[in-house]
Amino acid sequence: MRPEPADRYPLLSVRNLRKHYPLRSWWGGKGSVFRAVEDVSFDIRPGETLGLVGESGSGKSTIGRAVTMLNPPSAGTVAFEGTDLAKLSAGEMRRMRARIQMVFQDPYAALNPRMSIGDYVAEPFRLHRPGMARAERRDEVEGLLARVGLDPRFAQRYPHQFSGGQRQRICIARAIALKPSFIVADEPIAALDVSIQAQVVNLLQDLQDELGISYLFISHDLRMVRYLCQRVAVLWHGRVVELAEADALYEDPRHPYTRRLLSAVPVPNPVEERARLRAASLLPTADPDATGGLVEVAPGHWVADTRYA
């Protein structure tokens, strides 16, 4: 790995991450494994958003859950601010969770339907700051709700009384309660209507500007990924096949899978989109077969397998 300048010291450093799931074995025979994620390495810098794209089953969510230790990796290291998370005791990991948070696709499933949203947002304080006075906790919750654009008077209400976009704001309010430095956002806008997506994306950006939060942004919305993320990693069959600055990746994709993926993205402009459809029908659809170690083909632009460099 290249030495990083001190000021760009990575916040999160993932090396050779692997997640295998055993498949059922018959009659005591040797079971095989499903290789969900294989040899994935990347860094996330302070205040940076790294996009993770790829089709369903490519290992996006598995990586998100592995780096937060919600579903620890089979092998490889996840270092957060220099600390190897796998080596932490349960108690140390619990304290670490104040710094690492997650936001999920389905805000309704993430919320507890029988807990008022005020109690839900206050829960991290009860768990991590048991000494906090009730009045102070209430003030904090009101501040958080206001910060994500919700009326603090709504604290007594329950999740079913909110729309999808509001529910996602509630989840974000809780995620930022303990001032984390890193949030894994796994398809946070996929379940939201178009007119609401912009509200949530703007909120994520504002929070990054104010609090310096780094994000791992997992999404299948490739246009939003280019908009939001400084760098983007493309996953294919559990491996990173390309990683680059967002504009470099979208304007000069090197790996055949990246090219195929990007050429399939619809453009909301009738003239351009009809031209894209005509051009796309001429592209070969064969899957690339080779993936190897990442090679740097241009500054900061990494591609698997030198044949595509």
Binding site: V194, M224, D247
Partner: peptide, 21 residues
């Protein structure tokens, strides 16, 4: 409200959001 990428990420503007529900 859609991201305008005609000038790349560098030329992006804050997303226009429709307030309310």
């Amino acid at each position: 409200s859609l991201p305008d990428l005609s000038r790349g990420r560098a030329g992006r503007r804050r997303l226009h959001q429709i307030e309310g529900a």
